[in-house]
Design a binder for these strands. Structure first.
Lengths: 252, 252
DNA sequence: CGATGTATTGAGTCGCATCAACCCTAGTGG
DNA sequence: CCACTAGGGTTGATGCGACTCAATACATCG
C-alpha cells in the first residue's frame, strides 16, 4: 500500500525500479508492478566510499538492502589482526538478514558502493505479506550457502596453489559469462582485488599469494599485464591446478 | 486435501506429527493442525544404517526431509582422498534443497539415522502454498549460513589448537543447553565423533587432532575418560584457547 | 584368541608463515 | 617539474606448525 513516492528526498540517485540495472537478478526479481511500487516507495539509496564500513560485526543494523554497484566484502577479524573474508558482495547481492538486528560480520566497501536500502522493520513486514519476496530470498540464501560450503573445502583442504587456481577459475568463468567474448578456451579479465584481499579470502598471506601467482605466470599458465589484468591462454591447464574433479564440466 | 493416512505402509515407525520429538524445532514448527495433517499424509520414514550414504554429491535426489534421530554429515571429497565436512546434521535439521534436484555434497549417516522424508516435487508444491513452511526454511537456511561462515574463519585462520578448542567449546555449550546440569563453569559431555571425523571437520589430520587433544589433556584444560567422554573443569580456560574474543560472552 | 578398526606416539619432511628488504606506481606538495 | 612519501607488490632467508610415514597401543567383535 501507500505509493507516496512523489517527493522523497533523493540526494544521490533518483531511479525507477523498472529501470534498475539489477532488477532481474536481485531480491525483487519476481515482484510484479504493484509490489515493485511499494518497494520503490520504501527504498532509499546510499553511497559508501571505498573502505567505508557498511556494518560492524556485533553491531545493530537499521537497514537491509541490495548492492547496486560496486564490490563489498563480508569478513570477520580476530584481535591479533588475522582476518577471514567469508564472501564477496557483487551487484544484485542482498545485504543483511531479516529477523536478526545484529550483523554477524564486518561488511566493508571494497570500492565505491551504492546500496538500495530498506528500513529493516518495514522490510520484514513486507516480507511477511509478499508472496514473491520470501521465495526469492530463500533461493539466494541457499545459493550463498552452497558457495560458502564450497569455500570450506577450499579453506580446509586445498594447497596454496590450488586455492589461487580455484579463485582464478571462478572469477574467469564469471567474467566470461558476463562478457562472452567468444574466443575459444582462452580468456582475459580484471582481478578487482588487492593481494591482501586475496589473502584474506583464501586464508593465506600476501607473500604466499604473490609467490603462487608468479609461479603460475612462470609456468605459462597465466599471463599478467599490469598486476590486475590476467589472461589465461589455456583454461583447461588452469582447471588442472585446482585439484577439483571436473570430469563432467559444464562449460561452453 | 487428502488426509488418507489411515493405511500407509510403515515398516519402521508409525508416528503422529503431533507426538514427534522434534516437532517444535524442525521445518514444520510453525505449521498449524491442518497443514500438519497434510505433511503427515505426505511423509514416509526411512532408516539409514551407520555409514550409509543418504545422498551422493552430483547425484539426483528424490526426497527432502528432516532428520529425526541420529547424526549425519555433509561433506565433499577430492579424488585423492582429501575430504572436508561442511556441516553436521542433528535431529530437527533439514536435509535437501527445494528447487534443486542434485545434491551438492555427500550426505553420510554417522550413526543410525531416521529421516522423515517428503517427495521433493510434492514438497515444493506445498512450499509454494504454505505460509508457514517458507519462512521457517529461510530462517533455518540463514542459521546454517551463519554457521558455515563462522566455520570459514576457523578453517582459514585458526591454528590446530584453536580449532580443537573451538569445537570442544561448541559441543560443550550445546550439550549444556540440552542437559542443564547446573554445575558451575565446569561441564562434561560425550564427543560423538571419531578422530577422523574431527579431522575432516576441522581441516586437519587425525594425528594432529590426537596430538592437540592430548596436549590439552596434559595441561589440565580438559580431562578424558575413555576416548569420547570429555570433561572441562574450567570452561573459561578452554575459551581462552579458542582465539575468539569473548569479551561479552553470553553464558550463565 | 586373533582380527580389524580406531587412537596414540615418534621421527622426519615440507609447505606456508614470518621477518625483512626492496621495487614499483601513484599521489602530493614544494 | 621533480623529490618525497605511502601503499601495494615482489623476492629472499629462515623457522615453525602441521603433514607424512611408520610403528605401536587400545578396543571391539567374531
Amino acid at each position: 500500500m501507500m505509493v507516496q513516492n512523489s517527493n522523497t528526498p533523493h540526494h544521490l540517485i533518483s531511479r525507477n525500479c523498472g529501470e534498475c540495472p539489477i532488477r532481474h537478478r536481485a531480491i525483487c526479481s519476481r515482484c510484479e508492478t504493484d509490489e515493485l511500487a511499494i518497494l520503490d516507495s520504501m527504498k532509499t539509496y546510499r553511497t559508501y566510499k571505498k573502505d567505508e564500513m557498511i556494518a560492524y560485526a556485533g553491531q545493530e543494523i537499521s537497514h537491509v538492502g541490495t548492492l547496486v554497484t560496486g564490490v563489498a566484502s563480508l569478513s570477520q577479524g580476530m584481535e591479533d589482526g588475522r582476518r577471514q573474508i567469508m564472501g564477496i558482495l557483487l551487484p544484485s547481492d542482498f545485504v543483511g538478514r531479516p529477523g536478526r538486528r545484529v550483523s554477524s560480520y564486518d561488511i566493508i566497501a571494497s570500492s565505491e558502493v551504492i546500496l538500495c536500502r530498506f528500513d529493516i522493520s518495514s522490510f520484514e513486514a513486507l516480507l511477511a505479506k509478499s508472496p514473491n519476496l520470501g521465495p526469492r530470498l530463500l533461493e539466494m540464501a541457499m545459493d550463498e550457502l552452497d558457495a560458502a560450503r564450497e569455500w570450506m573445502l577450499l579453506l580446509g583442504r586445498k594447497s596454496a596453489r590450488e586455492k589461487i587456481a580455484t579463485l582464478l577459475c571462478m572469477v574467469g568463468t564469471k567474467s566470461k559469462l558476463l562478457n562472452p567474448t567468444a574466443q575459444n578456451s582462452s580468456l582475459a579479465f580484471e582481478l578487482p582485488l588487492t593481494r591482501e584481499m586475496l589473502a584474506d579470502y583464501l586464508g593465506l598471506t600476501v607473500e604466499t599469494v604473490s609467490r603462487q601467482i608468479t609461479a603460475l605466470k612462470k609456468e605459462g599458465i597465466i599471463l599478467l599485464q599490469g598486476q590486475r589484468h590476467i589472461s589465461v591462454p589455456d583454461f583447461s591447464r588452469l582447471l588442472d591446478e585446482t585439484g577439483d574433479d571436473y570430469s563432467g564440466a559444464v562449460l561452453s
